[in-house]
């Protein structure tokens, strides 16, 4: 079987000041081409001002099976959220 162009994940900043967000993926032989392909495929309607491309193979993802141990422990740390604290209504700007 012949080799295929590798897959790259594409992240786009839609406006200045915003985070890059995952837009999709493209195939490309190298990073330069991946950027160009991402530009041609994902910004046809002015969707972006900046693009990142990352080889899909370089992404390490968390295992959904471990979702419990990874994410559930944060569930009861309510004190990390501002609404945990009971303050008088008269208090403003806090």
């Amino acid at each position: 079987m012949k080799k295929e162009w590798p897959v790259w994940e594409v992240f786009i900043r839609s406006r200045s000041g915003l985070d890059h967000r995952h837009a999709g993926s493209v195939h490309a032989a190298d990073a330069k081409m991946a950027l160009e392909n991402a530009r041609d495929v994902y910004t046809r309607r002015q969707e972006g001002v900046s693009i990142w491309v990352v080889p899909s193979a370089s992404i390490t993802a968390s295992d959904p099976e471990e979702g419990g141990e990874l994410f559930e422990p944060a569930k009861d740390k309510v004190y990390r959220h501002p609404t945990f604290y009971d303050l008088p209504d008269e208090l403003t700007h806090m």
């Binding site: 162009w5 493209v26 195939h27 490309a28 160009e36 392909n37 041609d40 495929v41 046809r44």
Partner: peptide, 8 residues
């Protein structure tokens, strides 16, 4: 020759 290039 492939989709990306076609679109370009």
């Amino acid at each position: 020759p492939n989709l990306e290039t076609d679109i370009a």
